[in-house]
């Protein structure tokens, strides 16, 4: 099995609205693919199609080696799905939720109980295991939800916005738990609105816009694709801003951007370390006291905004 998840030309239309306009994806086993994109770009529809919940109008997809349309049962044996909301039964206790899933997955009564205890321990839910899950906090529900998809030790895990609405501490806890699964060799497809989440968890990132893939690569590749590195310096007093700007201008022969509010000067860095060296030399010659001197790469947020904001034009340049 070359790819744990593979999709070719997936199309889906709801009425007049084309939700997927030909999506291609391939995720090697044991890796994490992050799907980024604005609301309505087709991320959830893609996940639902791959998780056998939705039949595509065109195209084909395999998950764990089985076709999602022709062999859905085989696919379902090998996947775990955590949807956008924690899919826990509120009236059941945490333990009962996990035992129920275990029994449905064919572990038997005893097997399901043993597996539930393992997961309750692993996810720090043992203390709350006997309480109905409606009394759980948002973070605990998400953890229970993630535990529920892991009951049958799936090969492929679909996480659809797993941390939406969580506080930062719960988010980090959940990230660590996802990482543990990744370390065990589980293949993960993750959709998210949080770019730092993709940065933290994903090996590769696919950016969606209007139902198609508009860019693909590692976080670093995407950042590089969007913009050059910038050199940013801060000065102590605003009187020295002009002198600093002049010095940087001489170093890279391009007009720098000056932000008087934050006393910062920024310039595009086109020739890497050479530009840095010249800028440093010019600044030293000008005698301007510099308090911060840094090379900055565009953040994933900037990547995201640039790629999705201009959607139509970047369509062709993406996916190299």
């Amino acid at each position: 099995m070359e790819f744990a998840i593979q999709a070719e030309g997936l199309k889906k239309r709801f009425g007049d609205h084309e939700v997927l306009a030909g999506v291609d994806l391939s995720v090697p086993p044991g890796t994490v693919l992050g799907l980024l994109g604005p609301n309505g770009a087709g991320k959830t529809t893609t996940v639902r199609t791959l998780a056998t919940l939705l039949a595509p109008d065109a195209g084909r997809a395999t998950v764990a080696g089985y076709d999602v349309v022709r062999r859905p049962r085989e696919v379902r044996r090998r996947i775990g799905l955590a949807g956008q909301y924690a899919a826990v039964d509120e009236l059941l206790t945490g333990r009962e939720n996990l035992v129920l899933i275990g029994r449905l997955m064919g572990l038997g009564r005893r097997g399901a109980q043993t597996r539930a205890e393992e997961l309750l321990d692993g996810f720090g839910l043992q203390d709350a295991a006997g309480r109905p899950s409606k009394t759980y906090s948002g973070g605990m529900r998400r953890r229970l939800d993630l535990a529920a998809c892991l009951v049958a030790s799936p090969q492929v895990l679909f996480l659809d916005e797993p941390t939406t609405g969580l506080d930062p501490a719960s988010r980090i806890t959940l990230w660590q738990q996802v990482r543990e699964q990744i370390a065990r060799g589980v293949t993960v497809l993750l959709t998210t609105q949080y770019l730092e989440e993709a940065d933290f968890l994903a090996d590769r990132i696919t950016v969606f816009g209007s139902g198609r893939v508009i860019a693909e690569g590692t976080a670093d590749e995407l950042k590089r694709k969007v913009g050059d590195e910038r050199l940013e310096i801060s000065v102590e007093r605003s009187e020295s801003l002009d002198a600093a700007a002049a010095a940087l201008g001489r170093a890279v022969s391009e007009a720098p951007a000056v932000d008087r509010e934050t006393r910062r000067v920024a310039v595009r860095l086109v020739d890497g370390i050479g530009g840095v060296a010249r800028a440093a030399a010019e600044l030293e010659r000008s005698g301007v006291p510099v308090i911060d001197f840094a090379v900055r790469r565009p953040s994933l947020d900037e990547v995201f905004l640039q790629l999705t904001g201009t959607g139509a034009q970047t369509k062709e340049s993406g996916d190299e």
Binding site: T52, G83, G106
Partner: peptide, 13 residues
């Protein structure tokens, strides 16, 4: 609404 139906439908039952 709770997403439980999705979970059941994604399982081999």
């Amino acid at each position: 609404r709770a997403g439980l139906t999705d979970r059941f439908r994604s399982m081999p039952i």
